[in-house]
Design a protein around this nucleic acid. Sequence first.
DNA 1: TCCGAATTGCTTGTATGCAAGAAGGTATAC
DNA 2: GTATACCTTCTTGCATACAAGCAATTCGGA
Lengths: 237, 237
Amino acid sequence: MMTRTSTAMQEVVIAPEPSLAETAYAQIKASLFDFELLPGDRFSETEVAARLKMSRTPVRDALYRLEREGYLRVHLRVGWSVRPFDFKSFEDFYDLRLILEEASVTKLCEMPEREGLDALAAQWLVPATDRIADSRDASALDEAFHMQLVAIAGNVEVARFHREVTERIRIIRRLDFTQRHRIEATYEEHGKILRAIMRRRVEEANRLLRSHIIASKAEVRKITMHRLYTARSAQHA
Amino acid sequence: MMTRTSTAMQEVVIAPEPSLAETAYAQIKASLFDFELLPGDRFSETEVAARLKMSRTPVRDALYRLEREGYLRVHLRVGWSVRPFDFKSFEDFYDLRLILEEASVTKLCEMPEREGLDALAAQWLVPATDRIADSRDASALDEAFHMQLVAIAGNVEVARFHREVTERIRIIRRLDFTQRHRIEATYEEHGKILRAIMRRRVEEANRLLRSHIIASKAEVRKITMHRLYTARSAQHA
DNA sequence: TCCGAATTGCTTGTATGCAAGAAGGTATAC
DNA sequence: GTATACCTTCTTGCATACAAGCAATTCGGA
């Protein structure tokens, strides 16, 4: 009985079909992260649709998604605008991130099986010569470290929310890594955190993590205004 | 010159006119919570649009929003379906909720000013005769307690995410409150937690909160299958 | 020159039209 | 009776058309 029926619905690979709405979302988000769209900027759906060479429909989908995520604001029958930077909000996001990661680290120290932890260690416990120097790459790698830490802890929903938080502060965190010594420090701190986790030192791991994130938060607080202004100037040049 | 002008424009209430998309969202969500739409059910945009007496556009907005929130799934050119219950996912949500509330309670115990805490106490530290008995009301009040606890802690973003988590598990949590003794227990436990917070007993407050939420989680785990089945049967009757 | 009111253009929200593709039923070959 | 291929119907994704309302602009008047 050759049931070559295509009833293998569940096996059907989720074809990488990027819908227009999806690409619009990615494009606009990239514009935000690259400061092509600056906080306070106003624009209309028609404008974006023309620029992306598609109709308003997928653009609207993308815009509303970004609005719900906190990046944009819509004004009824007036237009769209980029949410201005709210530093209180960024501080809150940093604290939220810390909360989620502390919980994950605590759990990690208590878990019997911690699949993927070794791989993470292999990536970070490396000699100084093997370290990434590029700002953009370092930023991405740093994000990956924290996200994997949470992922290994095994709570899918925590990981989902943590990812959202991470994305939300990416725009400001990236500015942090433009400084070389911050990259060095990140490697050091990540290494220490990992070692503490592997030795199941809950207190120590949490203390290190906390100071690591608080340091990052403080750095961002210092440089933000200046860097943002630079970014804006560069844009206008 | 009969000024029969209907220029009562200024009297027009500045009602925050709920858009069709918004009402569609609320309606569909209500259908989900009332088990009119059951896990696994399939339907099309046209169906919903006809039922809600509007076009597909606002319905689509609502459906996509619910899809991103985890309630629905969309199958390309096939139709929509209600996400089946994933109990692992609900457990994860409960743990996430606990993480956020523990962090909030800890912060509450350390904060100098805690505006709103007294009001909360006035609501919960009441004699047994003044207590709500209705299942639906009790459920809503319970939600409000936890959300206000987080809100008073002052982190807006934590509150936003916590709210989302709360909404996500509402559908299952409500089943818990159909049992009278669960309502009683909730009053007792909330009272204890509040008293501990007011006396700034961090450890105690967290311990109470943890056992409160874990108990709730356990209760839900016990009754879920049966209740869901009941709800489904009642629907089909 | 200054001020006010009508108007016109532009904006979003909603409805509708169209096309590619999937699912299931039906007819046909064997 | 069984399996296969076609075909009809229905689905979403996207494009376009229309409606209601805000805001700037322009025109008129003093």
